[in-house]
């Protein structure tokens, strides 16, 4: 390596002619071929490409800034206390809010977590403890499949499975649809977090006379818990804004309802129906709703980050 570096230095020092000092390999020939065509041109290409790449980075970040700015400007302008405390008003009456949708979203994501968390965490522990078995490989693969399923597919599944037999829409079916979406995400983080718990800790617990289940729950899971909580919150943030799975399950509700067996309002649904409506008042509320939804997602994500940080603090000792 050092020899090659010196060689290339000599090439640079000697300009374009010193490229054939040693018997060149195929790759060296290719490079020296380029060397002969002119270092200046190559440097120019290098600089141009660097510029293009930086431009790509700027363009990629631009939509985000664009969207967030609009959300802040249009959303904050329409946001007031009524938004959180009042119910939706009919068209033409000012001062409506989305109190029912905010409550509904909370209820739905609690149902989703209650459904997705045990299965996700349990499956994650299984995957970590039974690595390499055919069942674990199958479960991991199908977990990826589940993760890639379009959310609308989850919606019609939940409708077919939980709404159609009952005969009416319900908060429960919406929560379950979102819960199913959380499972693969939680299973993956749990598996990763459980795997990094040192074997020596497991052994220490077993040697103390801990049964495997007690070792798994009180030592391994507790040690991994901060990471798992983070993963669960990230999953929750992802599904909190989902709309498609709720279209034919939670369905939406113009009135205050907290019953899990009845149709329920949800922020994303409300944003959708207001956004495609022809009324300016409703458009304003849609922007406000979007801002609140993003804020909710952001808060969940920040809590998740703080949880991660807490883990690293205890992990590193003093």
């Amino acid at each position: 390596m050092a020899g090659m570096a010196r060689e290339s230095q000599r090439q640079r020092a000697g300009g374009m002619t010193a490229a054939t000092v040693q018997r060149p390999s195929a790759r060296q020939r290719a490079v020296s071929e380029r060397t002969r065509r002119g270092l200046g041109r190559r440097r120019a290409v290098n600089a141009a490409m660097l510029g293009l790449l930086a431009l790509a980075a700027v363009i990629a970040v631009l939509p985000l800034i664009f969207i967030l700015t609009y959300l802040l400007v249009r959303g904050a302008g329409s946001l007031d206390l009524n938004f959180f405390t009042h119910m939706p008003e009919p068209v033409g009456e000012a001062g409506g809010g989305m109190a029912n949708a905010i409550a509904g979203t909370m209820i739905i994501i609690v149902i989703a977590a209650a459904f997705g968390l045990p299965i996700g965490v349990g499956a994650g522990i299984y995957l970590a403890e039974h690595r390499g078995t055919w069942l674990a490989n199958t479960v991991r693969f199908l977990s990826d499949v589940l993760n890639g399923l379009p959310s609308i597919v989850m919606g019609i599944f939940a409708w077919q499975f939980l709404v159609r037999p009952v005969g009416h829409f319900s908060a429960l079916s919406g929560g379950v649809a979102l819960g199913v979406m959380m499972i693969p995400m939680i299973a993956r983080t749990t598996e990763e977090m459980v795997r990094v718990v040192p074997v020596s800790l497991r052994e220490a617990a077993l040697a103390l006379g801990y049964a495997r289940w007690r070792t798994g729950l009180t030592i391994v899971l507790r040690t991994a818990s901060a990471g798992i909580v983070t993963g669960a919150l990230v999953a929750l943030a992802r599904v909190a804004g989902e709309t498609a799975p709720l279209l034919f399950t939670a369905f939406g509700n113009q009135f205050w309802s907290t019953s899990i067996t009845q149709p329920i309002a949800a922020l994303p649904l409300q944003i959708f129906s207001y956004a495609i409506s022809p009324y300016d008042d409703w458009h304003r509320l849609a922007w406000a709703g979007a801002l609140v939804l993003i804020a909710l997602i952001l808060v969940i994500s920040i809590v998740a980050r703080v949880a991660t940080r807490a883990r690293f603090n205890t992990g590193s000792g003093d």
Partner: peptide, 14 residues
Amino acid sequence: AIPSVVYGLWGIFV
């Protein structure tokens, strides 16, 4: 992290 429906909202009006 931005929900699909928010992209849609932004899309319609911007």
